[in-house]
Design a protein around this nucleic acid. Structure first.
Length: 199
DNA sequence: AAACAGATCTACT
DNA sequence: GTAGATCTGTTTT
């Protein structure tokens, strides 16, 4: 099994697809929930107009400018959180947004956290994934070696034939970069809703 | 003090 | 499957 550092450290476009299929586990007082990642998006730091880090470090995105292996959690839509994994060297601010996964442990707890959602929707979408795992702003900056939160890489990356590639979701800028990666034929991959229908 | 950013949920077809 | 309403921390003025 590859070490954690060699999987999550490096050029973000290489790291992102390699994260597919790895197991992210998070333990709180309520218990443990783990998901198998099925969809991610790459954000290339301060050179990427789609990244929160584009305009330089702020109090909110500070974690992204730090070392790899930490969680960057941000708040959105008044009531939701989204979770990124920092993968660049300090100062690069590159990160991978975790967009969807399949709950593989703690199913009962995930169901409680997610209310009336069907099982395949438990972690289908970045904010749903955070909700199922119990991740919120208090986990911003958390290191994956902290014990309560771990990432277990796949022994070998998924074959390229099982990985879909397409533009990132919900961006106003740089929406045309094919920096979204997902496992094909996975029901837990979030639905792709193009901002505008192409004619 | 004011503007911004966005994913989910509900209801409807 | 599609359409529309929703909310608050962060950033900027």
């Amino acid at each position: 099994m590859p070490g954690l550092a060699e999987v999550i450290e490096g050029p973000v476009l290489g790291v992102a697809p390699r994260l597919l299929g790895s197991i992210l586990s998070h333990t709180t007082n309520d218990g443990t929930v783990a998901v198998r990642l099925t969809e991610v998006e790459a954000y290339a730091g301060h050179e990427d107009p789609g990244s929160h880090a584009f305009r330089g470090p702020t109090r909110r995105n500070d974690v992204m400018f730090g070392p790899s292996g930490h969680l960057y959690v941000y708040f959105t839509y008044g009531m939701h959180y989204c979770c990124n994994l920092v993968c660049g060297q300090p100062g690069q601010a590159s990160a991978v947004l975790l967009r969807a996964g399949e709950v593989v442990e703690g199913l009962d707890l995930a169901r409680i956290r997610r209310g009336s959602a069907r099982d395949r929707d438990l972690a289908r979408g970045p904010a749903r994934l955070c909700s199922a795992l119990g991740i919120d702003l208090s986990h911003n900056g958390l290191g994956l070696r902290a014990g309560a939160t771990t990432l277990r890489p796949r022994d070998q990356p998924h074959p390229a034939g099982q990985i879909g590639v397409g533009p990132r979701v919900g961006l106003r800028r740089a929406a045309n970069h094919p920096w979204r990666f997902w496992l094909t034929d996975e029901p837990t991959v979030s639905a792709y809703r193009p901002a505008k229908k192409l004619t």
